[in-house]
Design a protein around this nucleic acid. Structure first.
Length: 259
DNA sequence: ATGGTAGGGATCCTA
């Protein structure tokens, strides 16, 4: 089965691209972020017509995450347990086809040192606690989404420019590394060692501004983190750059793996 | 240091 993650930057603005991609690529599970709509505004019908079940955690204007799956979606969880709901729809988890999957939209953080940056750090602490608990079940788990962190200098187009900036600071990278050190596998990087691939081919996000896409000035900030049990049976992965080159694209492109 | 582009939805906020 193929599990893909994609930050669509507004589901309603991206329907044409999404439907075309579902039809042509046909991933079994799709983890979406930045829906920017409420549950009742989610355009479910055309997606269901392509054979997908849907679980949505929407929010007006901001955030919003969803799970699409060709197999039934069970045991849906719509927030990170423990801390209570702060109103941000950034997490949805469920079991489908014997795999526990989650779509996560980690906070951007605005600027280092701001209140929003502190919120981002706290979100990662909460995420870590939850992901740690999931490991104890020894299941196939795939937690994927927009982590808003470029894990290393290999994941940015200019490591000098991005020294200690938002998305690349040591504090942010430490939070990401903590997830990896617990035992989760960044499957795209694991299958594409930095010294053996063209790292720019793994970028998942390009700023809308200053012609970033045309100059391939991108970052790798969308990740699929797999439990050992999932990574053991993973055999393929990829980045669908094509969608970033379309008319009126999302600023992110889909990333996927096959298990 | 600033501002550049996009989306939502309200005349600004978030990214």
């Amino acid at each position: 089965m193929i599990i893909a993650t994609w930050n669509v930057n507004s589901i309603r603005s991206r329907m044409e691209h999404l439907l075309e991609w579902l039809q042509n690529f046909g991933p079994d599970v799709v983890l979406l972020q930045e829906l920017k709509c409420q549950n009742e505004q989610f355009p479910a019908e055309p997606i269901e017509d392509l054979g997908y079940n849907i679980a949505v955690h929407g929010q007006k204007s901001y955030n919003g995450v969803a799970i699409l799956s060709k197999t039934p979606i069970e045991d849906v969880v719509r927030e990170l347990p423990g801390e209570g709901d702060d109103g941000s729809a950034r997490y949805i988890e469920a079991v489908t086809n014997n795999v526990r999957v989650a779509s996560v939209y980690c906070p951007n953080g605005q600027d280092i040192g701001t209140e929003k940056f502190a919120y981002k750090m706290n979100f990662f602490d909460r995420l870590k606690i939850h992901m740690e608990s999931l490991l104890t079940y020894e299941e196939k788990v795939v937690i994927a989404g927009d982590y808003n962190i470029a894990p290393t200098d290999d994941d940015v187009y200019d490591k000098v420019k991005f020294r200690n900036r938002l998305l690349t600071s040591p504090e942010e990278r430490g939070k990401y590394k903590a997830l990896i050190n617990m035992g989760y596998i960044d499957i795209v990087r694991a299958m594409n060692p930095a010294d053996k691939v063209d790292n720019t081919s793994l970028f998942s996000w390009w700023d809308y501004r200053q012609g970033s896409w045309d100059q391939n000035k991108g970052l790798r900030i969308d990740h699929l983190l797999l439990s050992p049990q999932a990574a053991d049976v993973a055999d393929k992965c990829g980045v669908d750059r094509d969608l970033r080159g379309k008319q009126r694209p999302s600023d992110h492109t889909p990333v996927w793996c096959q298990i």
